[in-house]
Write a protein that binds this DNA or RNA. Structure first.
Lengths: 188, 188
DNA sequence: GCGCTTACGGCAGCTTCGTTGACATATCGG
DNA sequence: CCGATATGTCAACGAAGCTGCCGTAAGCGC
């Protein structure tokens, strides 16, 4: 009953032994990647859970915190676009963060309909704690795997995601470059 | 408010310009990885959603299907260990899959308390459809990134996860080897 | 300046999928 | 035979998604 039979690999010549082997490895390769994504994501996100639980927050809050921290003065709709959740789902999460003084909304200067979100000091402090946990894990993984592997990791991960996500990352990278070269927080 | 300030990077010499730059890039490197994991996982798992929705199933069902398909005759407790969810959460999902004739439980031979789970033909067919979607995305990513990158990807992903998950993957790989070399389904 | 559109908030209600705790049953193993 | 184990089940709850609808303030085009 194992999947050997229905070789999902396009053209399968059942007779040829080497060919069958290659096809099998190709399928196995992809299935392995499914496993990798599942476990790595599970354990990476789980690394921050103890801190969150201690504060009565969830992963949704962490994600919001992360992307607000990474994009100071982000608008609500931009954040919605990144998280790909609905307004109501975000409202709950954001409400909790604002109430606890982790996130501070400020009316936009050029467009006063916008509520531009940034982390407060308390929010940044919490985010830093959460970050530290994930950082440990990731830094250890990077050390263990080596620089070349990291570069490959980035290339594959980037290639897996949507075009929109890649565009976002490009923007991130450019913004980081500007920050690095000594710019202040660019306001909108 | 950008994170430049609280350089989390171990030893920081605030004066030295190049050092600060390197430290910054190091932090940025980790934060980028957070983004990568979020987006890649989001879009990879999302790829199968349309099919699931069409059948009134969710991602939880997909995960169960995947790991049962990959481990024919898996016991309930083993599956629980992989998914890291509670018995009741799994019971619901599993109940739906058994009811729809996707999963067939068989009492264990050596230990008759166990209900060993396998996919039925219908279950395997559905899993194959779901797999095909994710496969497209992943195969494209692999082509785009290249073989060296894929190797690095695997190394990093593996290093991110728990020891237990790595051990599981090692078992998988050995089992795949046995299947590849022509073994039948190993029964327990 | 009128009117359409946009950005955002809020209410009501639903679904999926995770949780805990308690308890029942069959089976294994010593 | 008895304790540990594998599993199922009921009840209740909670987190975090979702839809649909309506309201308000502000921007913007004509």
């Amino acid at each position: 009953m194992p999947d050997q039979g229905h070789a999902t690999g396009a053209e399968a010549k059942p007779g040829e032994r080497a060919g069958a082997g290659l096809l099998f490895l190709r399928e196995e390769e992809i299935r392995l990647a499914q496993d990798l994504l599942f476990f790595a994501y599970r354990d990476f996100t789980g690394a921050a859970d103890p801190i969150l639980e201690e504060l009565g927050l969830g992963r949704a809050h962490h994600r919001a915190l992360h992307f607000i921290g990474r994009n100071p003065a982000i608008s609500v709709s931009e954040l919605l676009g990144i998280l790909r959740i609905t307004k109501q789902s975000l409202a709950r999460v954001l409400g909790a963060l604002v109430e606890r003084g982790m996130v501070a909304p400020v009316a936009g200067r050029t467009d006063r309909r916008q509520r531009l979100l940034s982390l407060t000091e308390a929010g940044a402090a919490l985010e830093a704690r959460l970050f530290a946990r994930q950082r440990e894990r990731l830094a250890a993984a990077y050390r263990e795997a080596g620089g070349t592997a990291v570069e490959g990791f980035r290339r594959v991960m980037r290639a897996i995601m949507d075009e929109a996500a890649r565009a976002y990352l490009d923007g991130q990278t450019r913004a980081a470059g500007r920050r690095w070269r000594g710019g202040g927080p660019e306001d909108r």
